[in-house]
Amino acid sequence: MRTAKDRPAPLEYNRRWSMRLWLTGVFIFLYAPLMALVAFSFNDSKRNIVWKGFTLKYYGQLFRNDDLMIAFANSLTIAFVATLLSLVLGTLAAVLLWRFRFPGKAAVEGAMALPIVVPEICMGVAMLVFFSSVVPWPNNLVWPFNLGAIIIAHVSFCFPFVAMVVRARLANFNKEQEEAAKDLGASEWQAFRDILIPHIRPALIAGALLSFTLSLDDFVITFFTSGPNTVTFPVKVYSMVRFSVTPEVNAASTMLILLTVVLMVLGALMQKSSQRRS
């Protein structure tokens, strides 16, 4: 056989076996722990290392665990409200920085980017101090208002991400479209609503997805702002993990992974349909 059919061209690095091996190795490194975690949430053994048979009993325990369910509900509520607020604030911030020229713009730009780069731990302790000594958040409020401090903290680090995504999308907006709308009689607000918002819709979806996941995932900042009555899912899981590796934690983690995957697929589908429309 002297055919060269399977020889890769010089720049087809992905077709070299060494590169494929490397790629496979890295993906095993990234995924094997998660796969094992998911698989063993269905394992009928407390020791959780040898496969003993399929069971859903840990999921049953999960749903009977009231603390965990409350924490889960708290997390979803916080993520939902924080995402809504972040979308509004992030979009406004993006439009502000894209559209207007005003004194001190560079400083505003820097301040808006700050929450993205400040280490989580610093933001966490800042929020702790703020909500305990500067404006103490009353801790006897009814649900969901007792979550207010956490929601505020989450919005503070989520909306700059939304602003970033929306601004990237605005960068390729043809301003003449908006001028045409105004030429045809639209007011400032009408032009914003009818022309600009449809253009940035994909970015809004991406931003919403991003802030929802960021909020749902956050542990460090929440850890410093949550009280005994306002435990979120990651905080609850953290306290469980501290004790030991149990199938119940595996089950809880699997549910959160599933939620993340569903969110990503949903986001991708929405993205696709909104791109098709525009």
Binding site: P33, T213, P234, V237, Y238, V241, S253, T260
Partner: peptide, 11 residues
């Protein structure tokens, strides 16, 4: 996109 805590726990 997966929760940091969960990934650490998996390790």
């Amino acid at each position: 996109w997966t929760n940091l805590l969960i990934r650490t726990y998996a390790l």
